[in-house]
Every structure is written in C-alpha cells, then in structure tokens.
C-alpha cells in the first residue's frame, strides 16, 4: 500500500518536472474553472447545446486557419464569438427552433472544417490533436492568454454574481427590475466562446463542451443552493481535470490516452457516483416518508 502511494506521489510530482506539463496544468486548470462557472448558467438556462455547437464551429475555424496558414487562435476567437451571438439570437427569435439551429450551425462548421483539411494537409497528427486534444498543445503565449482571460472571467463572475443568479433564475423578473438581461446573456455567450477556443487545444474540439456541462450536472445531483452548485462544480472541474491529465501522462506506454478523453472519463465517473448518492438519498427519504406517513 505504502509503495503504491510513493509511486503515485512520484508520478504526480514527476508531471511538474516538464515545462510543457506545467503549462498544460496551469492553463488547463484555469480553463476548467472558467468553463464550470460559465457552465452553471448555460446548463440551468438549457443552453448546454450552444457550448457543443461552439466547439464544432471552433474546430471548423481552426481547420480553415491551418489550411490557409493563418494563426489558429487569432482567427478562431472572433469567428466563434460571432457564432455565439448568432446562436443566441437564433434561440430567442426565429423560425428555426433553437436546438435545430445549433445542429445546423455545428454540422455546417464541421463540414467546412473537414473540407478545408482534406483539400490541404489531410488528417495528420495536428488535426488529430485539434480533435482530441494534446498535452503539448499549449504554447507559452497560449498559457498567457488563458491566464488573462481566466482572470477577467473570474473577476467578472464574482462581481456580477448576484445579477447572474437573477438573470439565470428568472429573466423576466430581472428585466422588470431594470437590469439589462440580454446583455448578460451576450456576455456569457462571448466568454463561453473564448473559453472554448482556448480550451480546445488541450481538450480537443470533440470533447471541450464536456468541461462546461459535466461538473455542473454532477453538482446538480447533490446541491440545494445556487452558491453550492457554483462552488462544487468549480471544485469538481479542477479535481477532474487534474486526475484526467494524470491519467493521460501516466499511461503513455505504448499508447497514451489523449488528455481530453481522460478528463471526460473521470468526469463521467464522478457524475455516476454523485447520481448514485443522490438516488440513495432520495430513496431513503421516500422510505422514511412512507414510514412516517403510515
């Protein structure tokens, strides 16, 4: 047993001895935190699919940028922000219903991306890492971008906490008190877009939206107040990220699991665990309720 912990400790500390791992950990941890915070609003407002749609748009934009030889991040961020505006508008008022609109936009973006890749480089390791993430994906400037944006998101979230709660819980009431609810929706969509583009390098386009949805869903199983949902999902997101990265780092012989997949699997495990606890809890309550009633 003791030997196991020693080797686990060595393996965990070993991660920090590589520059690229430290970058991945710092950048990824910040992205996880931000996506969990944004995820609370998105999941509760039934906008989770927007996150998924944006990740596909993000992939399409990256692919086009690669094919055209442009800087991927600088090209993708404005495109995805634009898509976020569009999806939100489509959700509010249009002939195409919100969920169909998301499917429409995400498959189109994917098709454009695939077409761009096939007609230029073909599916190589770069493309693979965009789809499923890579520990090596974070450059120094990427990490710097992550730090700056995460700081902005965290500060904004804390400052506007009360208003974000009100807008999420009841948009009509919040509008009636003179708060510009539409603006908050827009800001949340834009921040989500940026988070997705930044997180995509490590998580992969196909898996990044899980970072937004999973921790919140797990927290929702057990929490009974908004504040606890926010805190628990942020904490879970960080812990699952760390565990997922460790899996990707540790099991690299002969083939490594991409970090995105590792993180999602850990998140899934936590979700199942929390659901089970919630189920047992409810079951207990209904049994004791029956006893009290009878």
């Amino acid at each position: 047993m003791a030997e196991f912990f020693v080797s686990l400790r060595d393996s965990v500390f070993g991660m920090f001895s590589y520059g690229f791992m430290v970058r991945a950990l710092v950048g990824g941890l910040l992205i996880s935190l931000c996506s969990a915070l944004l995820g609370v609003s998105l999941v509760l407002k039934r906008y989770s699919m927007i996150g998924d749609g944006l990740s596909h748009v993000s992939f399409g934009a990256m692919a086009v940028a690669m094919a055209a030889g442009l800087a991927p991040l600088q090209f993708a961020i404005p495109i995805v922000v634009l898509a976020a505006f569009l999806l939100l508008r489509l959700n509010e008022n249009s002939r195409v219903r919100g969920d169909s609109a998301v499917a429409l936009v995400s498959t189109s973006a994917l098709a454009i991306g695939v077409a761009a890749i096939s007609s230029s480089t073909g599916v190589n390791t770069d493309v693979y890492s965009y789809m499923f993430g890579s520990l090596l994906g974070m450059s120094k400037s990427d990490v710097l971008l992550c730090v700056v944006f995460s700081a902005i998101i965290l500060v904004m979230f804390v400052l506007f906490y009360n208003r974000i709660f009100a807008v999420t819980f009841d948009e009509n009431f919040t509008r009636a008190t003179g708060t510009n609810a539409g603006l908050y929706d827009m800001v949340i969509a834009v921040l989500t877009a940026v988070t997705i583009v930044l997180g995509m390098r490590m998580m992969g386009a196909m898996l990044i939206s899980s970072l937004i949805i999973f921790p919140v869903l797990s927290a929702l199983q057990l929490c009974r107040s908004y504040r606890s949902v926010v805190l628990v999902s942020a904490a879970l997101s960080g812990v699952c990220f760390f565990a997922g990265i460790w899996i990707s780092y540790h099991f690299d012989d002969p083939y490594s699991i991409p970090p995105g997949a590792g993180i999602v699997l850990i998140n899934l495990l936590v979700f199942l665990l929390f659901s089970a606890v919630s189920f047992v809890r409810r079951h207990k309550k209904s049994v004791s309720g029956q006893k009290a009633g009878g």
Partner: peptide, 24 residues
C-alpha cells in the same frame, strides 16, 4: 411573473431567491 420551466427544477435556496428581489 408566471413560473417558467427553468425554475421548476432550479437549485436555489429560498433565501437566495427572496434576496434576489433586492436587485433593483
């Protein structure tokens, strides 16, 4: 306002909801 679907399964404590009335 009339209740919305979102609220029916929203994780918020009673105090959090009431306090949000002071938003204005």
């Amino acid at each position: 306002p009339q209740q919305t679907d979102i609220q029916k399964d929203f994780p918020a404590s009673v105090r959090e909801v009431v306090l949000s009335g002071c938003l204005n």
